[in-house]
Design a protein around this nucleic acid. Sequence first.
DNA 1: GTGAAAGCGCTAACAG
DNA 2: CTGTTAGCGCTTTCAC
Lengths: 338, 338
Amino acid sequence: MSRPTIHDVARAAGVSLSTVDRVLNERTGVRQATQSRVAAAMRELGFQRNLAAASLARRRQDRLLFILPGGSNSFMRGLERELTRKAAAWEFTQLEVATVPPFDDAALAAALREVDPAQTHGVAVVATDSAVVRAALAELRDKGVAVVTLVSDLPSSRRQHFVGIDNVQAGRTAASLLGRFCRGRPGRIVIVAGSMLVRDHAERRLGFEQVLRAEFPEQQILPPLEALDDQDIVAAELGAVLDRHPDVVGIYSLGAGTRGVARAMAGRTPRPATVVHELTAHSRQALLDGSFDAVIRQDHAREVAAAVSLLQALIAGKPVEPEAGRIGIEVFLRDNLP
Amino acid sequence: MSRPTIHDVARAAGVSLSTVDRVLNERTGVRQATQSRVAAAMRELGFQRNLAAASLARRRQDRLLFILPGGSNSFMRGLERELTRKAAAWEFTQLEVATVPPFDDAALAAALREVDPAQTHGVAVVATDSAVVRAALAELRDKGVAVVTLVSDLPSSRRQHFVGIDNVQAGRTAASLLGRFCRGRPGRIVIVAGSMLVRDHAERRLGFEQVLRAEFPEQQILPPLEALDDQDIVAAELGAVLDRHPDVVGIYSLGAGTRGVARAMAGRTPRPATVVHELTAHSRQALLDGSFDAVIRQDHAREVAAAVSLLQALIAGKPVEPEAGRIGIEVFLRDNLP
DNA sequence: GTGAAAGCGCTAACAG
DNA sequence: CTGTTAGCGCTTTCAC
């Protein structure tokens, strides 16, 4: 016996297909009595709507737009690759990607303002923290477009959700690892960041210092390097710090430019314990050859999947759990590389 | 402009719908010339088949059966819960779960033999390693049913794939963590297993000893405890070992019965570094209160998703990458608990 | 308030 | 080899 259809329900309830459809989709214009008769029939038959048929008949393709910073940031390029890869496979949704100059809030605001609500039903945006962006985002929401922030949040804006990892938690995790890796060897810890003006970096640092101070007080944290995610600057600045402080036992690199970390450490013994962010070809290699101890990453694929399904739910007006969109933090050592 | 359909392709190529359908589904009976004409039209229009429509028209619901060990194993019960949860939501597939007595190969073989190939198109089975099971599995394959092993593999059987984590890699990861956590404090390491007769346990031990011996030779590994995944036995045996050897610096619990580990350690100082498997309410609590340092887990949800999509692909005769089915190993510290 | 009928894009017989 | 013709289960006008 195959699954009951609305025909079966209609017959059982003694009504027409349209009426079943009305109660199924909670449309108006059904008498209370009929409505409950149909509901009863559905329950009795164990009716489950066939979504394939529904979406076929409905023939509405949501169009979602992802706005990402351009440039050479390998994480963002990875996201973009994942996005175009999925775009081909996705069924009921159309995905589009737009890139804007990185760290340029005016450009981002302009891109948001250009979104045509007739064409685009939902937007996922890697936000930069600024008033013009907040305003543009609010405008977009007023036009009825669903909006989520991705990777980097914009709190106290009208974005409906954030999709990404908890960066404070990421910093805490890094501290947990690095602290344990250095246990029994008191010394200095270096934090290598891109810029404290970027929200995720600031949050990672915060979490890191929270845990390290509380649980590994024997370690002394040096003021964070802000190397603008540029591997040459990282190599130079970190190299200088390591020269100056021979007692550095741990390094936490919480931004990009990670190749510079490996370069600065090359040839030094004993090698400080090292935890970095993002799994790239280089960090993977560094993990394998033992220059890095652990890599923390956020998974492209899950981030995209979460953003899409969240936007779909928001557009459909379905309820969304507040915790949806939170991506887990992944920890990789040499031995559990994917 | 909406997506082109097979109608558009048919018109553009000057053929009928059926012909388009034939080349679309790589059926036989189309002249080479027509076939390439249609293919060209598809490419030109950027045709993408609407899977919803296809699966609606095809109206074939794959039925997949999951065979799991029964009993109180909390990992298995979690899997089962995940399975029934998904079963409701799944669209084009029907999921069913059967449980068999744990560690009972005859019962498992019988269950495999009972599968009706007319009803069930694919089977995912948590295998126990035995000849009767291999034979029953081969029979099932002969009937045309797709078969994958889940969680615990059965190599050199006719299962088409394995879905689960790489247990050797899990053991290596544990050693990487535990070794680093204990660095600078030479001493003894205890392995707590369920039974070395179970394949995944044996593999985890193997990977663990590989890495620990090679990279942390200052640590001495005690012979593994085999506590049958029973928390009382674990507590008793591990307690005895800890009494006998005050220099135990690390514990690796690679099976179940993890609550016994926490009980055995209660009140001892300094607490050995501890890495365990599977994230349960108890291991989570132990992580939070600091009795465990890390938990390694395999994700129910991903395991189920991978098994389903693999079976679907196998049934549809689609190509499957050999690496599909490999689930990543997740590492949790107190600070990145989901 | 309710029902009839015409599709959505694709597949599956069955004819040619 | 190729085309015609009914649907799949649901939504959507448009009548009544």
